[in-house]
Design a protein around this nucleic acid. Sequence first.
RNA 1: GGGCGAGUGGUGGAACGGUAUACACGAGGGACUUAAAAUCCCUUGCUUUAAAAGGCUUGUGGGUUCGAAUCCCACCUCGCCCACCA
Length: 819
Amino acid sequence: MKRFNPKDIESKWQKIWDETGTYTANLHSNKPKYIAMSMFNYPSGNLHIGHAMNYTISDVKARFKRQQGFESYHPVGWDSFGLPAENRAIKESMSPQESMAQLIPGYRHAYKAMGWSNDWEKEIATHLPEYYKWTQWIFAQMFKHGLAYQDSRMQWWCEKDATVLANEQVIDGKCWRHDGPDDPLVEKKEIKQWFFKITEYADELLEATDALDWTESVKLAQKNWIGRSSGAEVTYRVKGADDSITVFTVAHDTMYGTTFIVLAPEHELVQKITTDAQKTDVEAYVQAAQMKSEVERQAEKTKTGVFTGAYAINPLSKKEIPIWIADYVLAGYGTGAVMGVPGEDGRDYEFAQKFGLDIIYTTEDQSFVEYHETIKKNPAGYKLANSEEFNGLDFKVGRQKILEKLESLSVGSEKVNYKMRDWSVSRQRYWGAPIPIIDCPKCGNVLVPDDQLPVILPELDDFQPSGDGRSALARATDWLHVDCPQCGGPAERETDTLDTYICSSWYMLRYMDPHNQEVIFDSAVVNKWAPIDFYNGGDHATAHLLYARFVARFFTKIGILDNPEPFKQMLFNGKVTASDGTMFSKSKGNGVDPLEIINSGYGADALRTYLMFAAPLELWARWDAQGVPATHRFLSRLWNLVQEYLEAPEGKTSPKQQKELLRITHQTIKKMTHDIENSAYNTAIAAGMTMVNDLYKQKAEALAKTDAWKQALEAIVACVGPFAPHTAEELWHELGHSATVHKDTWPDFDEKYLVQDTMTIAVQINGKLRAEIEVATDATEAAVTAAVYANEKVQTNIAGKEVIKTIYVPGKIVNLVVK
RNA sequence: GGGCGAGUGGUGGAACGGUAUACACGAGGGACUUAAAAUCCCUUGCUUUAAAAGGCUUGUGGGUUCGAAUCCCACCUCGCCCACCA
């Protein structure tokens, strides 16, 4: 009997699949399409267990659909621009180009060793000019449509990377790439940079979120990130001056409770309105605030602030209220100024307490309850108080009336605010797509004409940032100096490169037309293949997934794409940790190397099956050293069963066994089809294991080379195909097929085989299980009840008692209620 | 501080309001073997008992229901995301 030896069969089939193009998708096929993929790979080292997890999830889905008869496409590519590659290149004194040329082949080899069904004909890499030409084209389109602009702003700055960061790239006050305990906090620097106006789409993105078939937590994270709040802008006049201060509030119904105004230290009016007496204090405070990082500010437990000496007038109550500055007010949100309502807002309350400011309550119960709490506890509404003519009104009515009054006085209007900011897309680093802009002293920022794209990234010897806040490109003088496309005069190229999140915001669409050099993609093909049917990953709940949605939406506006949502279904899967629950890390050296496991003799199939079996996909799994041996054992049992069948004598299968084999088979097909469809891979594999166990029991009865056995074995081999593709392929061929198991082989199930002659009914007495009875499947309720009363245990339990109620759940349970 | 999840055997985990603990690991026993590995078979929630037969069990406490791991309320614990967003 042939032994199960993954080493031989895996490399054999990988070679055959490669040579025969088994996984090459025909984008013009007449079959229904299916495209499954996992988040883009960032080549930075070796394939690790997290990759193995992520890419196997989408590979199983793609394989399942391919077997079901879909034209299934499982694309592959490299998110090859970006800082890790550049930093590695600096460290190992090689160019990032060379670094990629070294890393990518290693990944290709590893992907094939994992048995992933990628289409290698359509491979892409974002650092190649044929790709980034179109990344630059997107920038140009954004620019032409008024969605790309340059601005000088305070921006997050990572000292280690010497580049700015997008808000989304700041994690707990640190750079997303340097968030270790010894890494520095990010700082703010004023830098001229490019932005994409994602805020223009905030509302659309928010509204479309609910309908997505995505993991709920991700949808929620996106909604929170966009952070819509609707309220009003109200203008307070500064006493004795022409200036006025506009604040944003969601609680304009509490306006009569405003007893002070607070400006952010950076607010433009601070200098102007501060009185001479307060000047020293205010300047000191502003300076101190500038020195502090955002995180230090937030870490402070108590409120700080300084009085400016100026007063504002409440436009409704006409009361004079002091104007303060305090760093609990953020310059970047709303208008950078708030109205202090200490009767209804916790932060204002704390501030008022500390500095002895007045507190006015505007609700009838006249005590401090947080505004949102008040509404939550009393959704029906509370009544306004201390609000002059609005007293006694329900807050919803009062709110509306107050708004109307503000509007009539021209001091307020409805306003919607978003937490989300525009997307900062400039990076002061070398290894990215150059921004296709030429800075002309006469014409200003001039777009590089489309026919001159791509702006090729010049090869350099030294990739270190130039140190003046510009990238290494500032030193590439030949490249830098160009003629202005508009006036022909001397000009300079933009030295910033594009955030690599732009590269990954549209790659899924390029997969459908990867080599097109005329246009970004053929819309006809893309409209056939988009959206991505299945997408998964364990990171980027906000940044990447929001950017991709934004860019796709933009494509629909400029008419090159039909569907504004790029990902139809998105599974946010868990990660794999070490057995002690801590993260795998290079520094700890506790990593598990997928290739090592494969090569140790267990094979890719056992590894894949273990990863998919360990836990539900959305949960985090702990690495268990016993796991791969266990799934290897399962595959080996299946293997041996098929070998025994092949060596079995010709003969007959009894009608009884035939019926049982059919039942086992169809029950398994049903369960596995349903579970893989629903991404419940762990229970699908469990069902496969159950079938193999059941077949071993049948084998003990009788095993002969019959159609009944063959059909059962073919079904389980096909169903295991998505998880253990090599083993399935080998066994499929051994069972007599010459075509691949991986196309059009998924078996159908028929409910009629699931029906048994008898069924087991559980009998409860007062809800407690007391007996089980066996009745004919077609037994009537009367027959079942009769069988229940005939049961000895039931009789003992109801002796001397009165049965007051009988509940019969057909096919399942009988519950007798006795007294 | 806000939001969202999750608490089930020794472990990872199963269970449309209907027989809790599928499947797997680990453990114990047996077969095969000179022996070991591999393989195959059996047992395995806790507990009383020699056995037969009971009792108890899904974080804690209540509730709804003929029936609750599942639904509702309160509490405890853990995890994740966001966080002075006005």
